[in-house]
């Protein structure tokens, strides 16, 4: 048995952090949370999470950045927005989760080869380069960069997808890819 202590010292908190987050689109009402737990109750994935969405909101609000960013919760969030439509305080919890994912990716606060941020990254690059995503190439690259063994498990599905004509090996590229790149290159305003 592990008898590690769970106490949190106030010095571990970053009290300014949630106030910065509050400025981001969708995160305005962060401090209105009444901790009712309806988000967790309606979330189809909360039962797999280390912190329920409600607890994530409170970790953020109290400035426990490290715990929030290294939680499994933010990666399990499938962006289904159930919490957002249920929240009695109209907190856009999905947007808060996105914000945490962005920050965690930025600071590499996830296990190496953890597939979700890898997928996000690969998807991001593919679309940037070609303007469209290709499910086949995406899965291939995800496997290469996370765990190639997962391809083994996909053989059956892949077989069926090819057989039913649903797997396109062609990676499409849009004509206006340069136009798109110019658009994406437009710098953001400084906050």
């Amino acid at each position: 048995m592990d008898f590690g202590r769970t106490m949190k010292y106030q010095r571990e908190a970053e009290p300014d952090w949630p106030h910065q987050l509050k400025q981001l689109p969708g995160c305005e009402r962060l401090f209105s949370c009444i901790q009712c737990g309806k988000c967790s109750g309606t979330c189809p994935l909360s039962i797999y999470m280390d912190y329920t969405p409600r607890r994530i909101i409170n970790l953020v609000r109290e400035g426990f950045r490290n715990e929030a960013l290294s939680s499994k919760t933010i990666w399990l969030c499938a962006s289904c927005y159930a919490c957002a439509v249920h929240c009695p305080q109209d907190i856009h919890i999905t947007d808060v989760m996105y914000m945490l994912k962005r920050e965690a990716i930025q600071h590499q606060m996830y296990p190496k080869r953890f597939p979700i941020p890898v997928l996000a990254r690969e998807f991001y690059d593919l679309v940037r380069k070609r303007g469209r995503s290709s499910e086949f190439w995406l899965v291939l690259r995800l496997a290469m960069k996370s765990n190639p063994l997962i391809l083994l498990g996909m053989v059956r599905t892949g077989f069926w997808l090819i057989r039913t004509g649903r797997l396109s090996l062609r990676s499409e590229r849009i004509r206006g890819v340069h136009q798109l790149r110019r658009e994406l290159a437009t710098p953001k305003e400084a906050q």
Binding site: Q35, C36, G37, K38, C39, S40, G41, T42, C43, S46, I47, Y51, T52, R54, R55
Partner: peptide, 11 residues
């Protein structure tokens, strides 16, 4: 009734 027991942190 599906509810998060917020004192336990468990649904």
């Amino acid at each position: 009734m599906q509810v998060e027991d917020t004192l336990l942190g468990i649904v």
